[in-house]
Structures are given as structure tokens and as C-alpha cells.
Computed example of a mutant assay.
Amino acid sequence: MAVEFDHFFKAIGHQGAGRINLETDTFKAVLTNSAPNLATNEFLADIAQIANGNGYTTGGVTLTSVVWSDPAGDGKWRFTSAEFKWTASSGAIGPFRYIPIYSDTSAGDKLVGRFDFGSAIIIPDGSVFGITPGTDGIFRTGKGTLA
């Protein structure tokens, strides 16, 4: 299933102005079942995260092995990371439909973009839900997909 990544409108401006640094910032992913507003949401505090517990920690998981590069040298820059995941324990996690990504380094924890899975997901107790970026990474000069 391909899942698209959409930028929050203000994120591109923050990246251009250096308030979000795709090469050096620490990025995190959170879970929400409330539709983030791409046009108006700007900070993590604008997102209603799911409840803390059962393997979900408020503030989300840290993306590792983050890379901002032009791997083919063709001007198609890619933002990617290693797989990131949540493991449900002592109960289910969710429901959630959206996975916003934000810069934990930026002032106010600025939002970058979000994945929309189209319907609510529940991670059953003892199960793992992971995101593995596809060949386009999390996004590629604007929009990417999950493989």
C-alpha cells in the first residue's frame, strides 16, 4: 500500500529560512487520529496526539539514520530515515490515522508533514507497526510514498 506524505504549508518556508534543517535536526514521528490541518498547523502543540501508554510515548519516536541527499545527482533530493516503529504492550495502541513528522530541534517543534492512512489503525497488544520509507524516502523534493 502506497501512503503519501504531505507537507504542512509553513514547513517549506521554515526549511528555506533555515528554521528546519533537514541535514542536522532531530526528527520525530507521532500518532494522531485527529486530522492535522496542513494549511494552519505549524507546531507539534497543534496536533492532538493519541493517549500516552501501551507502548506509545507522547512526543513520538525518533527517526534514526536521517539523510537529506541527492543520491542520483539528478537534482531530486530525498529525505529518508531508517524504519521507525511502535510496539503495543499491555494493551493496544490507537486508533490513529495520521503520522505527523516534526523537527524536535526547531523552536516550538515545527511540523514537517504527515502521512494519512485513509482510515483508523489499531496496533493490537503484542504487535509492531513500522514505517519503512520507500525508494523516494519519506519525501523527495516535495512528496514521497511508503513502499
Rank of each mutant, 00 (worst) to 15 (best):
V30F: 01
L63R: 03
G73W: 00
R97N: 00
E23I: 15
L22N: 10
V112I: 10
N37H: 03
D104F: 08
W68T: 09
W86Y: 00
G53T: 02
S119N: 10
H14M: 09
K10L: 15
W68P: 01
L63T: 01
F9L: 15
G94R: 03
E42T: 10
H14Q: 12
E4K: 15
L44M: 04
G16N: 14
F96D: 02
G73H: 02
G113A: 01
F96M: 04
Y98F: 02
A88V: 11
A2G: 15
T40S: 10
D109F: 13
V66L: 04
G75F: 09
W86D: 03
P100Y: 00
V112P: 01
V30A: 01
D109R: 15
V3F: 03
G91L: 11
Q49K: 09
G60K: 01
N37E: 11
F5I: 07
R114Q: 15
G108Y: 07
E4F: 14
F8M: 08
S89P: 10
F9P: 08
S119W: 02
L22C: 12
D116Q: 01
N52F: 01
I93K: 03
A39T: 11
T32F: 04
E23G: 13
A72S: 12
A35K: 13
K28R: 14
T64P: 05
D25S: 03
P95V: 09
F96L: 04
S106C: 06
L63S: 07
N52I: 08
T64W: 05
P36G: 05
K110N: 13
E42F: 01
Q15M: 15
F79V: 08
L44R: 05
A45I: 14
I50M: 03
S103C: 06
K28Y: 00
A17M: 14
G94M: 10
